[in-house]
C-alpha cells in the first residue's frame, strides 16, 4: 500500500514532512516584484525594531535640556536632534525608532494571534463540522457584526490601556475573516485523495488535521497574517490617537496623539507628525504588496 501511494501524486500522504517543506517554500512570495519590495520594507523595519537601542540617540521619553540648561522644546531638525524635539523637549527621532519597535510588536503579536485563532477555528470547524462548526460560525457572525473601532475603544477603556489588551481586542474581532476562509479551504481539502489515503491507513483525527490538512491551508493563513499586521498597526495607531493606547509603550500612534494634543498642527511642526504617519503607510503598504504576492501563489489565474 505504502509503495503504491508513494509513486502517485498522493504520495504527500505518506510524506507529511515533504508537504510541510513544500508549503513553506510557498510561504514567502518571492516571484512578484511588489511582494519583494514589501518584504524588503518589512526587513528594514524589523531591523530598526531590533537595533532600536543602538539606533536611537536619546531616551524617547526623557525630557532634554540644551547646553545652556534650558528646556529643549520644539527644536527644529538638526544634527543633535535628527527630527527635532517635541514641545516638552523629547527627541522625535528616538521616539520614531522606539515607536517602530512598539508598532511592530503589536502588529506581529496581533497578526500571530489572529492567524492562530483563525486557523485553529477554521481547521476544527471545517473538519469536525456538525454543532461545533455551527457554534463557531455563529460566533464568527457575531464578531463580524460588531463595529470594529468603537468596540476596541470600549474594550481598551475597560481593560486598562496596555499593549496586550490592544492585541486582545484586535484578535477577538479579526479572527472570523481568516477563520471562515480557512474553513472553506479545509472543506475542499478534506475531500482530496491524500486525505482519504491517510484515513484508510488509520491515521488519527488529530494527525489527519494537523499533519495532512494543515499544510494545505498554511499559505492562506500567511495571507491573512500579512493583512492582519497592517490592520493591527493601523488599529493601534487609531486607539492610541484616541487616547486609549498602551501607556507603557512608545508607538507611532502615541506620537501622533501627542503631537495632536500639543498643538503641533497649528504650530506647523510637520517634523513631528509627518514621520510617524509615513512609517505607518510604509508598513501597511508593505503588507498589501506581500498580500498581492500571496494572491499570485494562491490564485494563479489572476496573473495577467
Amino acid at each position: 500500500m505504502a509503495a503504491q501511494v508513494d509513486t502517485s501524486p498522493a504520495g504527500a500522504a505518506a510524506k507529511p514532512r515533504a508537504a510541510w517543506h513544500r508549503r513553506l517554500k510557498q510561504v514567502l512570495p518571492t516571484s512578484d516584484p511588489f511582494a519583494v519590495a514589501g518584504i524588503l520594507i518589512y526587513v528594514v523595519f524589523i531591523l530598526v525594531a531590533i537595533f532600536a537601542d543602538q539606533l536611537a540617540t536619546h531616551d524617547p521619553m526623557e525630557i532634554l535640556f540644551t547646553d545652556t540648561y534650558k528646556l529643549a522644546r520644539s527644536l527644529p531638525p538638526g544634527p543633535d536632534h535628527l527630527l527635532g524635539t517635541t514641545n516638552v523637549g523629547r527627541d522625535i527621532y528616538s521616539q520614531l525608532i522606539y515607536g517602530t519597535r512598539g508598532a511592530l510588536l503589536i502588529g506581529f503579536a496581533a497578526a500571530a494571534a489572529v492567524v492562530a485563532v483563525g486557523t485553529l477555528v477554521g481547521l476544527v470547524s471545517g473538519y469536525l463540522g456538525g454543532w461545533v462548526d455551527n457554534v463557531l460560525m455563529r460566533l464568527a457572525d457575531i464578531a463580524l457584526g460588531i463595529p470594529f473601532l468603537p468596540f476596541v475603544v470600549v474594550l481598551a477603556a475597560f481593560l486598562r490601556p496596555s499593549m496586550w489588551n490592544v492585541v486582545f481586542a484586535i484578535t477577538i474581532l479579526l479572527w472570523p475573516n481568516s477563520g471562515r476562509v480557512i474553513r472553506s479551504q479545509v472543506l475542499s481539502v478534506r475531500e482530496r485523495a491524500f486525505v482519504e489515503a491517510a484515513v484508510v491507513t488509520g491515521a488519527s483525527k488529530a494527525q489527519i488535521l494537523f499533519v495532512h490538512i494543515a499544510p494545505n491551508v498554511l499559505p492562506l493563513s500567511f495571507l491573512y497574517g500579512s493583512i492582519a499586521v497592517g490592520w493591527a498597526i493601523l488599529t493601534e495607531a487609531s486607539i492610541s490617537f484616541l487616547g486609549f493606547g498602551p501607556s507603557d509603550t512608545v508607538t507611532w500612534g502615541y506620537m501622533l496623539q501627542d503631537a495632536y494634543a500639543s498643538q503641533a498642527l497649528s504650530r506647523g511642526h510637520y517634523n513631528w507628525f509627518v514621520p510617524p504617519g509615513v512609517c505607518i503607510i510604509l508598513v501597511v503598504l508593505a503588507g498589501f504588496f506581500i498580500t498581492r504576492g500571496y494572491e499570485e501563489i494562491l490564485f494563479p489565474k489572476l496573473r495577467r
Partner: peptide
C-alpha cells in the same frame, strides 16, 4: 494604507 486620522491631521 494611511491612517485616516493622520490624513486629517496633515
Amino acid at each position: 494604507a494611511a491612517p485616516e486620522f493622520w490624513l486629517g491631521m496633515v
